[in-house]
Every structure is written in structure tokens, then in C-alpha cells.
Amino acid sequence: MPEHTPSIVVAGGGTAGHIEPALAVADALRDRHGAKVTALGTRRGLELELVPERGYDLRLIDPVPVPRKPNLDLVKLPANLLRAVRQTRTILQDVGADALIGFGGYVSAPAYVAARSLKLPFYVHEANAKAGIANKLGVRLGGIGFNAVSGSGLPGAVVGIPIRSGISGDREGEAAQRGREAWGLSPDRSTILVTGGSQGARSLNEATAGAVAELSKAGFQILHAYGSKNDAPAVAGEIDGYVAVPFISDMAAAYGVADLVVCRAGAMTVAEITAAGIPAIYVPLPHGNGEQALNATAVVEAGAARLVADGDFDADAMVREVRAVLDDAGTFNEMAAAATNSEAGQVADLLADRIVADLGH
């Protein structure tokens, strides 16, 4: 073990899919090893809210978009990268960094280059089923790669996704009780959690608005996070057992009350729901390179979840899929058992232990 307090920088900005794994590892580094953790981000992402809430020092650099296709950002890339690398080098030196771990996104490419230039050990975690350009660059520069799933295209061990502590599907636990009090939910009714983020929530919101009346009549209650950038569904407040909120900050409580989750298939979302042992219906975003569908493939094949294409998901499909799970005790129990028996593991602890152990050599 190093004689001094290890100083580790986590680089994961932009979306929650990059930030939450970074913060999960940050928690493990701090709680298990007493490390000083600094988060690297940009002004573009959710890190401006999420990182300070978790109590970490956030240092900002200019974002460096790495385009998948030729465009103006590609022309600007060399100058943008050079500027961001200089900014990152200054931050790494200022905090006395011993190592860095990145999770992809705008902030990671300059972080990897800066760490390499300072001869710091650095690590690369890929959460998605298809590795991004920044993370591929990191491994090519000498970073040690880790993958959430096999076949991502990134060299490195398959370890899963780091998730925050406290995630549980225990409906009798403290988090579940907290959720029922916060949202006025009954412990005697099965609860459907619907969440689709902000920009990706439109089709989920439309299907939910059309399905909640029938689902309520069938005895279910619905907790629906419709996205802070979207309008509340017109039926909000009119249907018994339908609770519509713009955003859920206490996801531990949401998972605690949920019997079934209907949502997109972001890598972090799939990992958390599976670790909580909750059956799910995934409706992957129809954009990008198809990574959302791939993120859910393993748990669907294991029997823990169902997959419905966005174009096929409407109110009728939602009612049909939900009732196929919640009206059949055998199906529900099989799916819950498959999720509970998955290899979610303690990935954050594993990565934190590896980083600190390497510093001791």
C-alpha cells in the first residue's frame, strides 16, 4: 500500500451513464481506501449537479467531442484536444494525482492523453456493449481496459458495471418505506416503475399515459418519471395509483418499491435494475449504433427481462407486457430469480482495490 493518501482522478462526464459508474468507483476508493478523489468533467454534462451532491471536488475542462463521422468537430479536434490536455495536465499536477480512471465521454480522451504524458497509471472502463472512440484511444495509449460485457471491441477483462451502493429490490427495506412515504404508494399493490430519462422519454411517456387507466383498474400502481424537460402527462392527478414526477433523485427508493421496471436500456440502468433483482421490460432507444439493445441482451437471454422495440411499444403493448409478467406469478418469480442470480457483483470495489493495489507495487 502507498504510504501517503492516494490521490485518484475519475473522469466520467456528460451523461449519467458515464458519471454514475465514476462516482461508484469514487465512493469505493474513498470508503475502502481513504483515497482523495477528484472528479474531472465539463460544463456540458450532468456532473455539474451530480458530483457536488456526492461531496467530491469537481474540476472542469473544455469538452472534446470525438465525432463518429466527418464534420466541423473533426476539423476542430486537434486544437480542442490540445487545449483540454493542457487543462487536464494542470489539474492532475495540482491534485497530486497518482492514477486516473476514465469512463468515456467528452472528458475522457484528454484525460487519457494527459495521464500518458505525465506517466501516470490510468484505467479505462467501458460500460456499453460497443466501445466508444475515447475509450478505444485510452487503451491504445496504454490504459488498462475493463469491460461491462464481452465483445465491446475494447481489450480488457470483463468485470461488469460499477453501481452505487444501496441499490436493492427489498420491498420491506428502509429505502422502500422511504419511497412509499415520498410518493404515497401502497405496500399492498404491485408497483410499476416507468423511467426514460428526459430526451429519450417521449414514446414511453405516450404509451404510459395511454395505459395507466387500464393498469390502475387491474390493481397496479405506477410511479412514472416523465423527464424534467417534458410536460407532465395530461392524465397526471386524475387516475388512482398513478404518480407522475419529473425526476427521481432517490433511485434506491424507486427500486425498493418497484415490482417491475419499464424503461430504456442504458448500460447503467440495466446494471442497476439487474443488481436490484427486479424484472424489467426494456424499450431501447432506436438511435445511435444499437448499443442499447445490446446492453440488455444478456439479461433478456438469462430470462430476467423482456425486450420490446420502440416502434412496437404503445399503450396496448405496455398493458400486454406488464400483465404478462405481473399477472403470472410463475413468470414473475422466474424473472426475479434470474435477475437476482446474475453476476452484478461488487464491481466498484474490485476496480478501486485494483487501482490502489497497483499503486503499492
Rank of each mutant, 00 (worst) to 15 (best):
P70T: 03
L223E: 00
E20R: 00
T297S: 09
V347Q: 04
A201V: 04
G241I: 03
G311Q: 01
V194N: 02
I222W: 06
P187Y: 03
T195C: 15
N128A: 03
R140A: 11
P155A: 00
M1G: 14
D358Q: 12
S216N: 07
G266S: 05
A315L: 12
V319A: 00
Q292C: 05
L223V: 09
R354M: 11
L260T: 06
T42A: 08
A127F: 02
W183M: 06
G219K: 03
K136P: 09
A276V: 15
D31Y: 09
V356F: 12
L82N: 14
L326N: 07
N71I: 10
K217Y: 05
T269H: 06
D94C: 02
A84G: 14
P286N: 13
A336I: 07
T208R: 11
S249I: 08
G14N: 02
P63G: 03
H4P: 07
A265H: 01
E238T: 15
A218V: 08
G145C: 06
A258I: 07
L58F: 04
A213N: 13
T331A: 14
A211S: 11
K130N: 13
Q346D: 15
A244E: 00
K229M: 04
I281C: 14
R323Q: 14
E334W: 06
L359I: 06
A280M: 12
G200T: 04
G256L: 11
G290S: 00
R306L: 13
L307Q: 09
G105E: 09
L185T: 08
I239C: 09
A127P: 03
G241C: 03
A209G: 13
L294V: 01
Q177G: 05
S152E: 02
Y255N: 14
L29Q: 10
D353E: 05
A296G: 14
A16F: 11
D231W: 13
I61Q: 07
V300S: 07
L40F: 02
A24I: 00
Q177D: 02
I192R: 07
I101A: 01
Q292H: 05
G17F: 00
N80R: 15
G17Q: 01
I133S: 04
F103S: 02
L223W: 05
G197L: 07
P284Q: 09
G197C: 13
R178S: 11
R164A: 08
M1E: 12
Q93D: 10
K76V: 02
V319S: 01
D170C: 12
I248C: 02
R354V: 07
I355K: 09
G138C: 06
P121E: 04
V347E: 08
V158P: 11
A275D: 11
R189D: 11
A182P: 04
A324E: 04
V212G: 06
R86S: 10
A275Y: 06
P21Q: 00
L81N: 04
A258F: 07
V325Y: 06
D62V: 07
P52E: 01
A236T: 15
L58R: 03
E301P: 01
